[in-house]
């Protein structure tokens, strides 16, 4: 199987919806297959727009976007067959699940009906005769996630996939997503629900002030930083960020002694926003 090294490549991309308010400025990013990327950022930072740019749904004013060797804005058939975009708001389908499968699956050469059935079962959707327009938002989302994963596209772009899912479904979502990652597949999940991505993603991309300020794998992050809860609020020079709450004093420290710790995505996100420069310096020399 041929594995493309850089599955997505953005070079100095500029984008804005309004002329005087740039949303993305000189944004460059390279994404590799075999990873699940978590795309994080505050509201209005351009996360959804970044996903749309990759999908070729909006076009950059400057720069280039290469997806699987195709210019994304051209929406070439070969690219579309290997990119599945899961939007935050779902389209209105007046179809049963069976009809959805019958009509849409032939467009995707790698679609697996067995996988679709399996994911539906995992998500507790027992009947394919259910009409999508009659389902709850969460159920509809589960059907569309199951369909998207069954397409077996090389790139899966997911915008807030866990919004509207109940607690058991979020667990099911994590399990299913983790089981679908293959060496030639790349998943990008944009979300505010960072807890939903725990133990799922292997790389984190953070956007702030219209640019990518952080793009590292979890291994590198936990190698460079430590995330711990302390009983006392003692600080030294290695502390980059701290928060106190009822459970204790949360600290993000520079991991000078290479201690093991579990990544806290929310803490990482806050510490990057609070201390961008220092974190950049720490990660400069990987």
């Amino acid at each position: 199987m041929e594995i493309i090294q850089k599955i997505i490549q953005l070079n100095e991309v500029n984008f804005s919806y309004q002329k005087k308010r740039p949303l993305l400025s000189d944004l460059s990013l390279q994404l590799d297959p075999g990873h699940i990327y978590g795309l994080l950022g505050r509201n209005g930072e351009g996360k959804s727009t970044l996903l749309k740019l990759v999908a070729g749904l909006v076009f950059p004013q400057k720069g280039s976007i290469d997806v699987l060797g195709f210019e994304s804005r051209k929406r070439k058939l070969q690219m579309l067959q290997d990119v599945y975009f899961f939007p935050e708001e779902l389209p209105v389908f007046n179809l049963s699940i069976r009809e959805l499968e019958k009509i849409y699956s032939p467009f995707y050469p790698q679609f697996s009906i067995e996988q679709f059935n399996h994911y539906l079962k995992e998500f507790d959707i027992p009947d394919k005769n259910w009409n999508l327009s009659k389902l709850s938002f969460g159920q509809k989302k589960k059907v569309m996630i199951a369909f998207g994963l069954a397409t077996n596209t090389k790139i899966m772009l997911m915008d807030e996939p866990t919004n509207g899912l109940d607690i058991p479904s979020k667990g099911q979502f994590r399990r299913i997503i983790a089981s679908t990652l293959e060496a030639d597949r790349c998943l990008i999940i944009s979300t505010h629900q960072v807890r939903d991505l725990d133990s799922l993603i292997d790389s984190i991309i953070i956007m702030d002030e219209h640019e990518i300020v952080f793009n590292e794998s979890i291994d590198v992050i936990t190698d460079k930083l430590s995330f711990k809860v302390y009983d006392t609020n003692e600080k030294d020079d290695s502390v980059i960020y701290f928060e106190d709450n009822l459970r204790g004093y949360y600290q993000v420290r520079e991991n000078l002694n290479h201690e093991d710790s579990k990544l806290d995505i929310e803490l990482l996100f806050n510490s990057i926003l609070a201390n961008k420069k220092r974190i950049k310096n720490i990660f400069k020399n990987k």
Binding site: K52, A55, R75, F85, P87, E89, L90, V92, F107
Partner: peptide, 16 residues
């Protein structure tokens, strides 16, 4: 022209 259905339309793997 619909944001949600437009995404679905343009992402269908068929040529223009």
């Amino acid at each position: 022209h619909s944001r949600t259905n437009g995404i679905n339309y343009f992402m269908i793997p068929a040529t223009q």
